[in-house]
Structure formats: C-alpha cells, structure tokens
Amino acid sequence: MPSKKAPNPIDVHVGSRVRLRRMMLGMSQEKLGESLGITFQQIQKYEKGTNRIGASRLQHISTVLKVPVSFFFEDAPGTPQEAMEASGTQPTSYVVDFLSSSEGLSLNKAFVRIEDARVRRRIVDLVRSLAGEEA
C-alpha cells in the first residue's frame, strides 16, 4: 500500500489560520462551507492542510471571515528550510488548540476588548507568573 504524502507545511499553516479565524468568529465549519458553496468536510480538509486552498477560494474565505488574505500567511515558514522544520511540530498548533477550547476563546475575546496596552501587558505577566515562567 503506497504511503500518503505528508501535507505541505504552508497548506497546514494556512488551514490552521482559517480554523483560528473561524473559531474566533464562533462560526461552524458547516456555516463557512455554506457561505462558500462547499461541504463542511471540504472545510475540514482545508483546515488540516490535507487539501490545498486555491487562490480564488482563499480570497473568498478572506471575505467571509473578514480578514485580508495576508492574515492566513502570518508567521508562516518562509524559506524551504523553515518549511521543513515546521513540518514536524507546527509551532502555531498550540495556539489553534488553545483558541479551539471554550476557555481559550473566552479569554481571547475578553483580552482583545481591553484597550489599555499596559493592562494587557500586566495580564500577560500575571499569566506567565502563574505558569511559572519568567516574564
């Protein structure tokens, strides 16, 4: 039986950013799929990086999710070497996992509503301290 080719790290990254933004908006895979005229299963494949998102589809997704296309490439591995290194453990996967949890999503939504940058920095310092990490 032939082995399946591993997904391209950029496709995985873009898919994880689609999932991140969708979760931030509280939108289901089904709802995003309906907006794009595709199934939620296709959205699942995009989010896992199993299926590559074409340029016109990514433009449509960016419109539905109300972010610029560049959002999906933020922190993406830029060089082939970085892409190879990222194919192991995806550095942004813990962010997606965190924001996929109800606690993470609630914390993020509340945090972004705090307008004072000093207060936000103090909260980050507090959380680091509670986690036993130096600021």
Rank of each mutant, 00 (worst) to 15 (best):
M1W: 05
M1D: 07
S3L: 08
K5C: 05
K5F: 02
A6Y: 05
A6G: 07
P7M: 03
D11C: 04
V12E: 07
V14L: 10
R19N: 09
L20S: 04
L20P: 01
R22S: 04
M23D: 05
S28T: 15
S28C: 04
S28Q: 09
E30L: 11
S35F: 04
S35K: 10
L36I: 11
G37A: 11
T39Y: 00
T39P: 05
I43R: 00
Q44W: 02
Q44K: 08
Q44A: 11
K45F: 06
Y46S: 01
Y46L: 01
Y46P: 01
K48L: 11
G49H: 03
G49E: 01
N51R: 02
R52G: 09
I53D: 00
G54M: 09
A55W: 05
R57G: 03
Q59P: 00
V64W: 02
V64Y: 00
V64S: 05
V64L: 07
V64I: 15
V67D: 01
P68N: 09
V69C: 07
V69G: 00
S70T: 14
F72K: 04
D75C: 04
G78E: 15
T79A: 06
E82M: 14
M84H: 11
E85R: 14
S87E: 14
T92Y: 12
V95N: 03
D97C: 06
F98K: 02
S101M: 04
S102D: 12
E103I: 11
G104P: 05
L107K: 09
N108H: 12
K109H: 08
A110R: 11
F111E: 06
I114P: 01
I114W: 06
A117E: 15
I123N: 01
D125R: 13
L126S: 14
V127D: 03
R128S: 11
S129H: 13
L130R: 11
L130Q: 12
A131L: 13
A131G: 11
A131N: 12
G132Q: 08
E133P: 00
E133V: 15
